[in-house]
C-alpha cells in the first residue's frame, strides 16, 4: 500500500485512514424542525462507535434543519462531523461561503454531492441550481484548501482545512463507466469515498477490481457503504423504488424467510456479514454505516463486525 500518509488536515478521519486502520463513519439526518436535541441525541447514541459522523444535506430533497448548523452542534459536543454538501440548492457563492462558515467552526471533513433531484422532495416545484457539479465542488474545496484561493481567484484569509470526500455508486448505470467516474473524482481531488449501500457484493467486487485496474486503490480511501434492512418491506422498497440501488433477490428471500418480528434482527445480521465479507476486499479502507432513522443499531453493528473499540488518534 503506497497510499500517502502525510496529513493534509487536522481531520480525525484522515488520521485514522492514513494510519492504516479501518475507519468507521455513520450518518445522522437532521430533523424537520429546529430542535437541535434531535441531532444531538442521535450523535450521542453512536459517538463511541464511529470515527466521524456525516450530516445529510436536505436528503431526498426534503427540507430539514441545515447540515452546517447540525455539524456545528456536533462539533460543539466535541465530535467529528462530516459536512455533506449538495450542489442542488446553492450556487458557487453560497457553497464557498458555507465552506468558510464550516471552517470557522473547524469542521474538518466535507462530502461533495450532487443531491437528489428536487422532484423527490417536499418542494417539487422548486428551481434547482446546479451551478457547479459534485466534481467541480471537489475541485473547489481543494482549491480553497490547497491554494488558499476562491474560484474567482482571490486569496482566502485562513483557508479551510478539510479532508475532501465524495460518493460513488458502483451499482448505477452505465456500469462500465462507474470506475472511470471514480477516477475523475479522484483526479478532481477526492481523498475519501463513501459508496452507495452495498447489497450486491459480487457486483461491488467487480467494481473494485476495475477501480484497482485503474490504479486508484492507493490514491483514495474507499469506505464501503452499508445499510441494515429493517424489514422485507424496506428491502422491496429499496429494490424497486430507489434509483441506483441494487438489492439482490437473495436478500429479499432471506428476510422473507424469517417471521416479521425477527426481520430487523436478520437485517442486522446480513449487514454484519456483509461488512465481514467486505473487509476481505482489497482496497476497502473502512465502512460507512447508514442506519436510516435506526441510529441506535449502529453500536450493535460495529461491535458485531469486530470494529469496536474505535482507535484513539
Amino acid at each position: 500500500m503506497s497510499i500517502q500518509t502525510e496529513l493534509k488536515t487536522p481531520s480525525k478521519l484522515e488520521k485514522i485512514l492514513k494510519s492504516g486502520q479501518l475507519a468507521v463513519t455513520s450518518e445522522c439526518g437532521p430533523p424537520r424542525g429546529s430542535d437541535a436535541e434531535v441531532i444531538k441525541k442521535k450523535a450521542q447514541m453512536i459517538k463511541d462507535y464511529v470515527d466521524a459522523i456525516n450530516i445529510t444535506d436536505n436528503q431526498t430533497s426534503v427540507t430539514r434543519l441545515c447540515s452546517l448548523a447540525s455539524c456545528i452542534h456536533l462539533k460543539l459536543m466535541g465530535l467529528e462531523p462530516i459536512l455533506q454538501m449538495v450542489v442542488r440548492d446553492r450556487n458557487r457563492i453560497a457553497l464557498q461561503s458555507d465552506i468558510l462558515g464550516a471552517a470557522s467552526f473547524d469542521i474538518y471533513n466535507i462530502l461533495c454531492l450532487s443531491g437528489d433531484h428536487q422532484s423527490f422532495g417536499d418542494n417539487p416545484t422548486a428551481q434547482n441550481v446546479f451551478d457547479i457539479d459534485s466534481m467541480q465542488l471537489i475541485q473547489t474545496v481543494r482549491l480553497m484548501r490547497d491554494e488558499g484561493k476562491f474560484l474567482g481567484g482571490d486569496n482566502i484569509l485562513r483557508p479551510p482545512k478539510m479532508f475532501v470526500g465524495a460518493a460513488a455508486n458502483p451499482f448505477a448505470d452505465p456500469f462500465e463507466i462507474r470506475a472511470r467516474r471514480l477516477a475523475k473524482k479522484v483526479k478532481a481531488g477526492a481523498e475519501f469515498i463513501q459508496t452507495q449501500c452495498i447489497y450486491n457484493v459480487p457486483r461491488f467486487k467487480e467494481w473494485m477490481k476495475q477501480v484497482g485496474d485503474l490504479g486508484l486503490l492507493d490514491k483514495v480511501f474507499i469506505l464501503a457503504g452499508v445499510t441494515p434492512m429493517k424489514s422485507v418491506g424496506m428491502a422491496k422498497y429499496m429494490k424497486n423504488k430507489v434509483p441506483g440501488m441494487d438489492v439482490p433477490d437473495e436478500i429479499i428471500k432471506r428476510l422473507s424467510g424469517v417471521p416479521k418480528e425477527k426481520q430487523a434482527e436478520e437485517g442486522i445480521k446480513i449487514c454484519i456479514e456483509t461488512i465481514q465479507e467486505l473487509k476481505e476486499v482489497e482496497g476497502v479502507r473502512g465502512f460507512h454505516i447508514m442506519a436510516i432513522e435506526w441510529e441506535e443499531k449502529v453500536p450493535e453493528i460495529v461491535k458485531g463486525a469486530g470494529l469496536y473499540p474505535r482507535p484513539q488518534v
Binding site: H117, S134, A172, D173
Partner: peptide, 18 residues
C-alpha cells in the same frame, strides 16, 4: 435534470433518468 458536466449521477438506471 441536474445539468451535470461530469455525469452520470448515481440515479441513472437502465439508460433512464431518476
Amino acid at each position: 435534470a441536474k445539468r451535470l458536466f461530469n455525469g452520470p449521477c448515481g440515479g441513472s438506471t437502465k439508460g433512464k433518468c431518476e
